[in-house]
């Protein structure tokens, strides 16, 4: 049974490429973020007939998100990245299962996006968590984004889903 808190309804496009990985490797080896971002972009680019501006944007977004989330999550949590397209939009879906310490943070982030006032005060954030919030906020200001906190009521597991849209033209 799921209990969702949404900001904007998440859209389903046609999946192009999906990557699922353990965050541990990224936390201990930060260069993996760059490697994965480069790999994804190269695969997508190799299937394009001409260069597109959004591939450069995607590289930047990917590296920042991967760095931030993996630093916060550390050991043992899975991250899913789904690259899909829908009409003239390329969508990057970022899904991470919260650990005990990030659970409250993710719930607060989703609720903060729903509020109309400019600032939300978070309690007791580490420097990594502060940077993560700042990254999400900045991305939300620059790109159309949607966010969802999905709670499995049976297991109590919380997943944060973050969707970011890039225009292909």
């Amino acid at each position: 049974m799921m209990n969702n808190v949404n900001v904007g309804s998440l859209e389903k496009g046609t999946p192009l490429l999906t990557v699922r990985f353990s965050a541990h490797g990224f936390a201990t080896q930060p260069k993996h973020c760059q490697q994965l971002a480069n790999y994804l972009i190269t695969i997508v680019k190799s299937n394009l007939s001409e260069p597109h501006a959004w591939t450069g944007q995607l590289t930047q977004v990917l590296i920042r998100l991967l760095n931030m989330v993996c630093l916060v999550e550390g050991i043992g949590k899975d991250v899913d990245l789904v690259l899909s397209n829908r009409g003239q939009l390329i969508t990057l879906m970022f899904e991470v299962t919260a650990s005990a310490h990030s659970r409250t943070l993710y719930s607060e982030m989703v609720l903060a996006l729903k509020k109309t006032e400019a600032h939300t005060t978070y309690a007791d954030l580490t420097s990594n968590e502060t940077n993560l919030v700042a990254t999400f906020n900045e991305l939300s200001e620059n790109y159309p984004t949607k966010m969802q906190a999905k709670i499995n009521e049976l297991s109590g597991e919380l997943k944060l889903l973050f969707q970011i849209h890039l225009k292909t033209i």
Binding site: T14, P15, L16, L17, T18, V19, R20, F21, S22, H24, G25, I43, V44, N47, G76, D78, S84, N85
Partner: peptide
């Protein structure tokens, strides 16, 4: 699932 792992899923219908 707990171990270091990486999965890549290709969707040939949409990305040859």
């Amino acid at each position: 699932d707990e171990r270091e792992h990486l999965t890549i899923i290709f969707s040939p219908a949409s990305l040859p």
